[in-house]
Design a protein around this nucleic acid. Sequence first.
RNA 1: GGUCUCUUGGCCGAGUGGUUAGGCAGCGGUCUGCAAAACCGCGUACGGCGGUUCGAAUCCGCCAGAGACCUCCA
Length: 489
Amino acid sequence: MSNILLYNTLSRKKELFQAINPPYVGMYVCGPTVYGDAHLGHARPAITFDLLFRYLRYSGFKVRYVRNITDVGHLENDADAGEDKIEKKARLEQLEPMEIVQYYTNNYHLNMAQINVLSPSIEPRASAHIIEQIQLIEKIIHNGFAYAKNGSVYFDVEKYNKSHSYGKLSGRVIDDLQSNTRVLDGQEEKNSAQDFALWKKANPEHIMRWPSKWSDGFPGWHLECTAMSTKYLGDFFDIHGGGMDLLFPHHECEIAQSVAGTGKESVKYWIHNNMITINGQKMGKSLGNFITLNDLFSGNHKLLDQAYSPMTIRFFILQAQYRSTLDFSNEALKAAEKGLERLMKGLNLLSSLKISDISSIDVKALSDKCHEAMNDDINSPILIAHLFDGVRSINSIRDGKDTITATDLESLKTLFNLFITDILGLVTEEKTGQNNELTAKLVELLLNIRVEAKKNKDFISSDKIRDQLTLMGVIIKDTKEGFEWELMN
RNA sequence: GGUCUCUUGGCCGAGUGGUUAGGCAGCGGUCUGCAAAACCGCGUACGGCGGUUCGAAUCCGCCAGAGACCUCCA
């Protein structure tokens, strides 16, 4: 079916992807906690796994892609003393918690659509799966790996580690953890510092609460992913993805929960995307150095020289391999903007190429290279480099320096549409105002007068029209046939 | 402090033993009334010091610097 290599964090090497039940593939990716606008960092996993989703589907797999919305249980601080992120935001904004959840979920969906990220097959909410989480806690308690205390339930890491390996995903040793875990407030309930909460008893002022046999409370953060992934994908599924920062403790805890609950691990391939950095540091909420997607699209942020279109952001992220850090800078984004333009121009040129009896370019070889790049751990930058080689060939054919047959041209069109549009998910963006009929007519009227002036060698008038229009934000390109124009963003 | 990772030409970013990745910027050229745009051409870089090897950006060691995780984070 395919020979896709994927880097599995569990084994620390690239493995041949073999679906558990081909052609079906189950993929679970940790989605956002909806208590703020999505920032550039959130776009990385979304695009990374969107790319994988698209490529797996193209490769013949029927993928069920589950990406959750965390709307409860994600604590602000340590598991005992912390405050629920959603609740905190709700209190600050004087809103019902679910109002916050709805608002930021809507914004997330809008942003994802803007960067052309496909909707997952299922998008479960943690708050809608309390029963499943309670059932899982009961199983874990039944199997002896959790204990209740004062209405809360904690996972017994030490006991689990005696018969299983806690730390196998992140490469941690439990003894190191014990000696190095910082002393935090409110941990007195737990038997051991590294134990984590499965259920938390709610304080009286806590709004988000559900009844359970232990207390009126709410589930722990790590639990939701285990409960929801196995509910929709079964006890053993193919791919679990997320950001590298979730590796420990979140994903480590997921493994422990699933083994403690069902007796076996539930994930075959663990895949992690790396971070987006800014000035060499991770972009994140806690450091306050994040730039939201809305900021990027509007250009309205002190670190931004200009606005960047959603496709520029998408291309910027795709230009780096997902396991590398990617450093934000205006210079890098501008480079991405220009590069994307070049690529899309090449794609558009395909429809106007003249055909010949023979081809001087090798479309099949290009196609093979593109597939090889994607098969090698989804290496999008290599794929893009090959596509740029294709663009050079396309320009060269246009200039008459290379030739292409009708058959090869069809193949090349198919290839470009497949990789650029379907797999990389890059589409041409309409510029705002371009469709305003009156503006278009006025601009064209002026430019036609300018053509007349040029014919009459009245360069003073022609340059005046050009300079004035340029000042107004009309980009003019002179061509053999006359002119082309577009509005500045 | 512990665990792990990274350090590539002006910028971003691929590449794991021997062939020029690619993009942006820059320079040169074609085109143009002049420009702009577009297109074409041009860059032998791999933190430092040793070692292995016929040969290392790529393997090993040491040193320096940066980062991630260890607490919420995509």
